[in-house]
Structures are given as structure tokens and as C-alpha cells.
């Protein structure tokens, strides 16, 4: 009912959580566990550097990038910075530090257009196709939404809301009458723009963009 045309239903979220809700046994301990992963450092250590949209795989990117800074110059938000000497060989390459300014995913991707070398791949023309990295909730214990507070700031600010981040509600065992609205990142949709990391209200963001895990193919279609 009401799923036709303009009165479209809420989609898979509802079905998924109804299923979860129906099978919840009494006294189920809070799902998810409380795993804490140390805050990821992306600069300085030669670890993951968040590149502008369309960047080639890191090694090829380093080979192709002319360090001309054109992408940084056209970025309307000043999100693209040029790496300093702490980046070693990557000095002068463009990098995005989400907590300072994330990528706001301009529909026409001016940084990609400006890149003279192809280090930012012109083939990437739609924001949904961008893969800069993948957002991960790295500190579940400190995530306010996972503690049942009504935060979900990362979800509501996600430019691909309901695709890259969805809300999966589950029963709050502690209060017995409230819902834990869990933000869940979908790796196949997340483009790694870092807006969630920027807007996280905690002093140290509990959701951060990391290097996308490599694809591992198999033949299952779900």
C-alpha cells in the first residue's frame, strides 16, 4: 500500500529492521560490542591520504600527479590542500583533511576537470561514482547514536543519505522503551567525501574515512 508513485514507502530499511525486531529475544545483550580502534592518523605517517575525487590508485596517483595544485585552486570550498614535507615523497600532492574541510562533492567535479595529468581520472563524472575512501565508525563506544542518544548527525549530513549511510533501528534494552538508531555505512555506496567525519560532534570523530577495502569478487549476487 502506498508504495506506488509519489507515496513511496521507506524501502529496505523498514523491512530489515522489522525482521530484526521480530527475532529479538528477551534480554538480548546490546548487539555490536564495544570495540575501540585507535583514532586513525592519516597525515605524517605515510598512511592513508584522502585524495580528491577521481584519484587513481595511490601508487599510480603518485606517479601521475604533477603537483601543480590546479585542483586545489579550483576547489570552491578550499577542501583540497597540498601536502607538506611530512608527507615525504608525496609532498605537494593534493590531500583532503575532512575534519578541516571535507569534499562537498560539487556536481560538476571541477577538480577532476582541472587536473592536467589524469591523476584525477576524467572518467569519473558522477559524484556517486567517486571512491575516495570509505567511512567507518572506528570508535563505537563513543558514538552517541549507538548509546541511544538521538544524534545521527553523520547520517543527516551524508550527501548520499539513505544510500551510503542508513539508519538501522533496534530496541534499546537499557531503557526498554526507546530505539537505538544505528548509522550503518554501506561500503558499496560510500564515496568517502568525509562530511560525516567533519560533522561528528565528538571531540575526536568516531566516524572517519579510511582507505576503501579492496574488492574481493565471488559469485554471490547479494
Amino acid at each position: 500500500m502506498g508504495k506506488d508513485g509519489q507515496n513511496g514507502g521507506p524501502g529496505c530499511t523498514r523491512r530489515q529492521f522489522l525482521k530484526g525486531g521480530a527475532s529479538l529475544p528477551l534480554g538480548l545483550v546490546m548487539a555490536g560490542g564495544l570495540v575501540s580502534i585507535p583514532y586513525l592518523r592519516r597525515t605524517g605517517g605515510g598512511e592513508f591520504m584522502l585524495r580528491p575525487p577521481g584519484a587513481l590508485e595511490e601508487k599510480r596517483f603518485l606517479g601521475a600527479c604533477l603537483k601543480c595544485g590546479k585542483c586545489a585552486r579550483v576547489c570552491p570550498y578550499g577542501s583540497i590542500r597540498l601536502a607538506g614535507p611530512e608527507a615525504g615523497v608525496a609532498i605537494g600532492t593534493p590531500v583532503i583533511i575532512p575534519r578541516k574541510e571535507p569534499c562537498y562533492l560539487c556536481p560538476d567535479l571541477p577538480c577532476v576537470t582541472a587536473c592536467p595529468s589524469g591523476a584525477l581520472d576524467r572518467g569519473v563524472q558522477e559524484v556517486e561514482k567517486v571512491r575516495m575512501g570509505t567511512a567507518v565508525i572506528v570508535d563505537r563506544a563513543n558514538c552517541l547514536s549507538l548509546r541511544g542518544l538521538r544524534c545521527e548527525v553523520c547520517y543527516r549530513n551524508c550527501p548520499l543519505m539513505d544510500k551510503a549511510i542508513t539508519i538501522e533501528p533496534r530496541h534499546n534494552e537499557r531503557t526498554g522503551t526507546h530505539t537505538i538508531m544505528e548509522p550503518v555505512v554501506h561500503h558499496d555506496k560510500c564515496v568517502g567525501c568525509g562530511i560525516c567525519e567533519k560533522t561528528c560532534v565528538r571531540e575526536r570523530p568516531v566516524i572517519v574515512v579510511q582507505k576503501s577495502p579492496p574488492r574481493q569478487d565471488d559469485h554471490y549476487e547479494f
Partner: peptide
């Protein structure tokens, strides 16, 4: 009404 909404959704989680 974020906290009330959380309560309303919990009702639905418990009752199909």
C-alpha cells in the same frame, strides 16, 4: 521530538 520518536519507533520494533 527526537526522544519521543525513538519511543514511537521502539513500539514498532516490538509490535509488528
Amino acid at each position: 521530538h527526537p526522544v519521543l520518536f525513538s519511543r514511537l519507533i521502539d513500539n514498532r520494533l516490538k509490535n509488528q
